[in-house]
Nucleic acid binder design. Sequence first.
DNA 1: AATCGAATAGAAAGGTCGTTCTATATAAAA
DNA 2: TTTTATATAGAACGACCTTTCTATTCGATT
Lengths: 184, 184
Amino acid sequence: MSRSVKKETLLNVAERLFYEHGFRGVGLKQIISEANVATMTLYNHFSSKDQLVEEVLKQREERYWSYLDAHVEMDSDSPFILAVEAHGRWLKEQSYQGDMFLRAIEDYAGTDNEIENIARGHKSKLLKYFQELAQRKGIENERDLANQFTLLLEGTTSMTTLIGAEKATEHSIAMARTIVQHTS
Amino acid sequence: MSRSVKKETLLNVAERLFYEHGFRGVGLKQIISEANVATMTLYNHFSSKDQLVEEVLKQREERYWSYLDAHVEMDSDSPFILAVEAHGRWLKEQSYQGDMFLRAIEDYAGTDNEIENIARGHKSKLLKYFQELAQRKGIENERDLANQFTLLLEGTTSMTTLIGAEKATEHSIAMARTIVQHTS
DNA sequence: AATCGAATAGAAAGGTCGTTCTATATAAAA
DNA sequence: TTTTATATAGAACGACCTTTCTATTCGATT
């Protein structure tokens, strides 16, 4: 179906442009142009720019979790380290320019829309993910450890802007190892 | 002088609004309106919106370092922990809505302007700050430790969006202590 | 062959953006 | 007192924004 192809193209082009220049920094004109699509084709598939942003975020969230699930064996010896490593590889492959979800939360904060909810949902899922990992390992303060590892991932993402994904991940893994070793 | 007062008002109002809604999310109209100032007053003190952004960033950077310098005794027993604590208090007092410098880097990336340079300058100063702290303590891999603590601060800032400044800081300090204890 | 959905280019509407301009007021400096 | 600098409100500019509309083309289904 030609329909699906155009829609997917739009989603991919929009995701890339939003990622590179921010939601407010990219106009529909540019998206339409780079996707080689007519204005009405976009409005046929998405009711508004905001809804396009929502679907881009949903797509990106799916991709992130697929990536993590593919690289983290939850029952391995050190699933925490694997998760940090996987996150680092994800960042590297993205040729990183910031965290799209954090940006969404900030850009659309206080405007009471669905976009912020989706982005926050992704972040709380990350917390839950580490909690589950900690529970499987029978770690006492699973909530504390989950928060700490989420903080490490967030820090890695930010640091990537400054020193690149590889170095940021190295430092993150070093800290992760130390923390795992010295936690109940 | 009435001149300085207006300029300061503009800088403060702009900083608050940029912080709350992002650089691209705030128009000059709103800044002018909330500062109770005429359009030409703004253009009298700032040559463009971009230059206003630059000066806001410079002002914010100054404030940040004043705050850190005031709270961190560099020759104390644990200057690293003090720095993490001070950063946490700073975040709490800002009623946090993101990191303005990271946002500036992302929003203006690739447009080859002064804004990105200022923001990146602040971040590399943070790295240097921790390097100097590590050197004073005679720590071997001062660069590694500096990177790790910068990563912790960045993570704390991001996590504040999700769980609040106090909890984020607690987790950050916990990790900081563990790392300090088990480093050279 | 006729029909229908979906795509197309492009104009247009209605708004906001950053910036400049006009014309005037105020208050200190000369 | 005259000059100068700085303030004011508000209109105007051109550019861009999101969204809607028009008019046309293309291919597959009937």
